[in-house]
């Protein structure tokens, strides 16, 4: 009797919590920043330092791509980064566009491990859960 009651109340509480979370995710008015389209950021490296006109050409071709929100070159010119909407363009297409028909070999830049800005784990979980539950 007790275990049946326990199972029933636990099940009800779990169902109720899920329903509340679902309602919260879908009825809560998102903040201005939450309404922004998500972006990805990639850092690429060219196989050689481009001349000024080549750098301008890479910049121009990347800025023309649908979904690209920002492009930046490093001072020495071999490294560049792109912020883009992943729903509109892929990193592979960006890499291909930046190669200027294979005039450059473009690879993703890798880094050794380094201390990073801490992101509170709860924020990351909340962001992911609300993103999954939000359908409207």
């Amino acid at each position: 009797m007790t275990s049946k009651w326990f199972l029933k109340s636990t099940g009800t509480a779990a169902a109720l919590s899920s329903l509340v979370l679902f309602l919260y995710a879908n009825l809560r008015q998102p903040t201005l920043t939450e309404q922004m389209l998500p972006v990805h950021l990639k850092i690429f490296e060219l196989d050689r330092t481009p001349q000024a006109h080549e750098q301008q050409a890479v910049l121009a071709v990347l800025k023309q791509q649908l979904g690209v929100t920002a492009v930046s070159f490093s001072q020495e010119g071999k490294t560049f980064s792109v912020t883009y909407c992943p729903d509109k363009i892929t990193a592979e297409k960006l890499r291909a566009a930046a190669s200027l028909n294979e005039a450059f070999k473009v690879s993703e830049k890798t880094f050794p491990p380094s201390p990073a800005c801490p992101v509170p784990p709860l924020d990351e979980v909340k962001h992911k859960v609300l993103g999954v539950l939000r359908i409207f």
Partner: peptide, 13 residues
């Protein structure tokens, strides 16, 4: 963000 990512002084961070 793009500028920071392309900046070799700090992008490893």
């Amino acid at each position: 963000l793009a500028n920071v990512a392309a900046d070799n002084v700090i992008n490893a961070r």
